[in-house]
């Protein structure tokens, strides 16, 4: 069944590995509904990397889980949207078909390495498992592959018979990466793969992901709130706020031709190494409660450019260039510019 879909659709969308259209995911709890993702769309070509950036709670992990069709249900409900991974409509597939795609076409590195590994199985078995499932290898061959994968992420293959509690946090994260990469997925979702790691290891891991990506031609969704990592690894950037993408474009579009006040806020809250005396300018206030989002632009309460209209209506979509999109009503005024661009003397 799976291969049938495969054959038909791969020709149609040769280049697009991932396409997310108007994704809405809510967590329906007893007393309230968390509107975690509210209409996210983006797409990704083979071998490219997109960075999903945003504050904590913006809905990044939820988006990634929805791509795997792994949003915990209950409470999670995918209200709307289509997700196409390598031609498969993830949200329409049966459990059986999904099992064939997960781990093979698309896999995910999870945010918290401490809890993402099964404590009672050896790391070798955990890596070998997906190899056995997807490549029909015998156990011994799969285990050998697992050892190779471990070597590849910088862990001696002999440690494959050990259990996760015998590994450090950084090593666990690498094991998670090895698991995700074991079957050479076409699409990799890396959910903050480095937050649990110290800086030197962070760099190693990022390099490693980069190498693998280049070697295997994997498309990557890099979820992070670290703009430095984005600058280092991504081709495209999607800035998320309160479950929406507020700005979307190539790395250069977003970094050099920043349009959205929130993106600007993110940059301002970064320490400026070249100018140590400059004050950090964190974005004032907090992200709105996702159970109770404002009627208008969700960022409006924290936005220094916000007008009355911003608070009343959803922001309008503006395609700045073929690759660059921003969701901000302030640009209804043709003379509007955020400070970051103003300082650089003009837009584009």
């Amino acid at each position: 069944m799976g291969s049938e879909i495969n054959d038909r659709t791969v020709q149609d969308n040769k280049e697009l590995v991932l396409e997310v259209e108007d994704l809405i995911v809510h967590y329906v709890l007893q007393e309230e509904t968390v509107e975690a993702v509210n209409g996210v769309s983006f797409s990704l070509e083979r071998g490219k990397t997109i960075g999903l950036v945003g504050e904590t709670g913006a809905g990044k992990t939820t988006t990634a889980l929805a791509i795997m069709n792994l949003v915990p249900d209950p409470p999670g409900v995918i209200k709307n949207g289509t997700i196409t991974v390598c031609g498969h409509k993830m949200l329409d597939l049966s459990a059986n078909q999904l099992e064939k795609i997960r781990g093979k076409d698309v896999s995910m590195i999870f945010q918290d390495p401490m809890t993402s590994l099964n404590p009672v199985l050896t790391v070798g078995d955990q890596i070998a498992e997906s190899v056995m499932l997807h490549e029909n290898l015998s156990y011994s061959k799969a285990f050998k592959r697992a050892q190779e994968m471990l070597e590849m992420v910088g862990i001696p293959g002999t440690r494959a018979t050990e259990y996760p509690h015998q590994f450090s946090g950084g090593m666990k994260q690498r094991v998670g990466i090895a698991i995700a990469l074991a079957c050479n997925p076409k699409l990799l979702l890396a959910d903050e793969p480095t937050t649990a790691l110290d800086v030197t290891i962070q760099a190693q891991v990022l390099d490693m992901i980069d190498d693998l990506k280049r070697e295997l031609g994997t498309a990557l969704v890099m979820i992070t709130h670290d703009l430095g990592i984005v600058a280092k690894t991504c081709d495209l950037v999607a800035v998320m706020y309160a479950g929406r993408i507020v700005e979307y474009g190539t790395l250069e579009d977003v970094f050099d031709r920043t349009m959205h006040p929130y993106t600007e806020g993110l940059f301002n809250s970064l320490p400026d190494i070249s100018n140590r005396k400059s004050q950090l300018q964190p974005i004032p206030g907090l992200m709105p409660d996702p159970t109770n989002l404002p009627r208008g632009c969700a960022f409006a309460p924290r936005c220094r450019y916000a007008t009355a209209a911003c608070r009343e209506e959803q922001p309008s979509r503006r395609e700045v260039s073929e690759t660059h999109t921003v969701y901000c009503s302030a640009y209804d005024d043709p003379n509007f510019q955020i400070e970051r661009t103003r300082g650089r003397g003009g837009n584009g």
Binding site: E99, K104, S107, M108, F110, Q126, G176
Partner: peptide, 21 residues
Amino acid sequence: ADYLRTARAKGVPERLVIRRH
């Protein structure tokens, strides 16, 4: 537990997720 999500993400069939993991 998170590791069940990891297992599912690997494409482990549900029955094995329960039994093995």
